[in-house]
Amino acid sequence: MDELLDFFNNPFVLRVTKLLLWIIVLVFAIGFLRKQIKKRINDVSIRYKAQKGVEVVGYFMIALLLLVFFTAKNISDYTIIIGLFTAGITFTLQELILSIAGSFYIFLVRVYKPGDRIEINGIKGDVIDIDSIYTTLMEMGEWVSSDNYSGRVVKISNAFVFKGPIKNYSMDFPFIWDEINILITYDSDIAMAKKIVVDSAVDLLSDYTENSRSKWNELLDRYYIENATLEPTVAVSLTDNWIALNLRYITDYKLRRSTKHRLFEYIEQSVLRTNGAVSLASTTLQLLKIPEVDVNIKKEHAKRT
């Protein structure tokens, strides 16, 4: 019992105990304030930012406590022990520490924010939450075609912001380029077909083109990047079976699938109104009739005697 009392009366043990108690108090305070903010603030955006602000301040205070503890002069005799202990904790919790550092990096550098569509660690989706350890995505793709939700909510460690590329579809330029191929037969009027495709894209996508122009100019001013054509363009290529008209256009990053559907529908109706001057092509097979073979077998009229 005396040894146990001597252990707890040790100044270093007392300081460690106080440190742990302060950390526990701060963690509970963070949780309490988050719950109060959730109850009292109705606006989703303001509530989300306030909760994240409480988390950031709380973790900063914990880091400050640790800094004061490890730099105090009266524990200089324990430098080696503390160094070994810190190294062990750092190695054991390196993924957690990297995740927390990643959360600060995400918020300070604005790598992405809730509402952005990103692809990270091979997973694509819309960001629905960012906490101190995980980024939560509403997944897209996988067994679902195009840019549709799969229905799965995916949590990705914030540490991945340091480990690989992050593809952001919406941060600086919320538009993307897309392409479709229109296939026509060789006996079609190519000039008319090109006009139909370009006019259809201009009629349907003029708003996207105009809205994207200012964003693109901001991108040119901010980054070292070459200028690009925002208006719809068509490139023609010849194949063994048909003429391919490749339409390149710009659209909203969230409306890629619906835009492609509207374009195909609009172009098909315009082609039908040409009364055969332009015909859509498809893979065809021509079956050749095999000539009939007349086989005449002569029977012996008489048996040899």
Rank of each mutant, 00 (worst) to 15 (best):
M1L: 11
F8Q: 12
N9Y: 04
P11T: 08
P11R: 14
V13P: 07
L14D: 03
V16Q: 08
V16K: 06
T17Y: 09
K18N: 11
L20A: 11
V25M: 05
L33T: 15
Q36M: 15
N42H: 12
V44F: 14
K49Y: 03
A50T: 06
Q51M: 15
G53R: 00
V56I: 15
G58L: 10
M61R: 06
I62Y: 13
L66T: 14
L67D: 12
V68D: 14
F70H: 01
A72P: 06
N74Q: 14
I75K: 10
Y78D: 04
Y78H: 11
Y78V: 05
T79D: 14
I80E: 15
I80G: 04
I81V: 15
T92R: 14
T92E: 12
E95H: 13
S99T: 08
S103E: 08
S103H: 08
F104R: 01
F104L: 09
I106E: 04
F107C: 01
I118W: 09
K124F: 07
V127Y: 09
I130M: 01
I130L: 03
D131R: 04
D131K: 02
G141K: 13
W143L: 08
N148L: 15
S150E: 04
I156A: 00
S157Q: 01
N158V: 00
N158A: 01
F162P: 04
K163W: 01
K163R: 15
P165Q: 01
I166H: 00
Y169G: 00
Y169S: 00
F175G: 02
D178P: 03
I180V: 09
N181Y: 11
K195F: 05
V197K: 08
A201R: 11
V202G: 04
L204Q: 09
S206E: 15
S214W: 11
W216S: 05
W216K: 06
Y224F: 12
N227M: 05
A228P: 00
L230G: 09
A235P: 03
D240A: 15
W242F: 12
N246G: 03
N246W: 00
R248G: 08
K254P: 03
R256I: 13
L263C: 07
L263M: 07
I267V: 02
V271E: 10
A277H: 14
T284N: 12
L287Y: 07
P291L: 06
P291S: 04
P291T: 07
V295F: 09
N296I: 14
I297F: 12
K298L: 13
K298M: 11
K299V: 13
K299Y: 12
E300L: 07
K303G: 11
